[in-house]
């Protein structure tokens, strides 16, 4: 705890008091009681000299999935609601699968942030990674680019390539990409405006997406047409980058809302999620004083 930087929002307009350090939780508790800030934050980074963010030691690997900013939401609400929070949690689940099953990372935690979720990885193997590697992990887990579809058997000049679409490769990044593309297509409302996907293509996608529920990718691609299929997956790949707030993942010195503190703008508790399968923020993250209000 004494290696992290703490930040506070005393005016209700974002963190305005940073570089704070606490030796133990008692001192932090006293500070909170005395100053009663609007919001509390702590750094993902550990420093030798946290009071000046000096001598960086390591940082948690973080993924911020905000329900309000999801690129595709089936609810169309203005802020966040039960539906988009649930969709955010589905995305969190699929990212955790990749972090654990593909990348073999351990010590992976989920925090409900008030408007979405933070995945916080404290695996020592990941905490030393620089921003460039984190950026690559981010793109890998979110399916942010269309994988190559031409493969060569050997590194020899003049060979003919094998053409393999992502959905024919059930391993590695291609499998992650297929999973993300499927998620987005099945959650489209048909009203979206997406770069590289014109209204006619979107309409055809909506008409034929039932093939994907049965994993019939070949049939789906045939119905769409090979050229338009490439436009479709390229367009969705760009959207996928928006599944996670990229800036949070690559920033080694970010401060994040402190679990157990209150998100004062939405009156929800920022809290650790022990079981993502049955977590319901509208039941578990509502503070007592809100629950006791008459209108709740």
């Amino acid at each position: 705890m004494n290696k992290r930087e703490f930040g506070f929002d005393h005016l209700g307009r974002g963190p305005n008091d940073r570089y704070r350090v606490f030796k133990n939780s008692d001192l932090l508790r006293k500070f909170l009681r005395y100053r009663a800030p609007f919001a509390v934050y702590s750094s993902v980074a550990f420093y030798k000299k946290p009071w000046k963010r000096g001598e960086w030691l390591k940082s948690e690997l973080v993924f911020d999935v905000d329900a309000k900013d999801l690129p595709v939401r089936s609810c169309n609400c203005d802020s966040v609601c039960e539906i988009c929070l649930d969709e955010a949690l589905q995305i969190v689940g699929s990212i955790i699968d990749v972090l654990k099953e593909d990348l073999g990372l351990k010590n992976v935690h989920v925090i409900y942030s008030g408007r979405g979720y933070h995945i916080r990885v404290l695996d020592p193997a990941a905490m030393q990674l620089n921003s460039e590697v984190r950026s690559q992990i981010l793109k890998y887990v979110s399916g942010a680019f269309n994988p190559k579809n031409r493969y060569y058997m050997e590194s020899l000049p003049g060979q003919k390539p094998y053409e393999l679409e992502h959905f024919t490769i059930p391993v590695g990044y291609s499998a992650v990409f297929t999973d993300r593309i499927k998620y987005i297509i099945l959650h489209l409302t048909g009203e979206e405006e997406i770069d590289q996907i014109n209204p006619r293509l979107l309409k055809d996608v909506m008409q034929n997406r039932h093939f994907l529920e049965e994993e019939k990718w070949g049939l789906f691609k045939n119905k769409i047409g090979p050229r338009r299929y490439k436009n479709l997956v390229d367009g969705i790949a760009k959207l996928n980058l928006g599944l996670v707030d990229a800036k949070v993942s690559i920033d080694l010195k970010r401060i994040l809302r402190l679990p157990t503190s209150l998100h004062s703008k939405v009156s929800m508790k920022c809290m650790k999620v022990d079981n993502i399968e049955n977590f319901d923020p509208l039941k578990e993250a509502v503070p007592k004083f809100v629950r006791e209000r008459k209108e709740f």
């Binding site: 593909d102 073999g104 193997a125 990674l129 460039e132 590697v133």
Partner: peptide, 26 residues
Amino acid sequence: LHWTSLAELLGSKKINLSHLIIDKGQ
């Protein structure tokens, strides 16, 4: 070979994570 042991290569962009087939970190 755990993928994080190639962190230096990944960090200097000499190799890309998506080029590798990784399972449970290996």
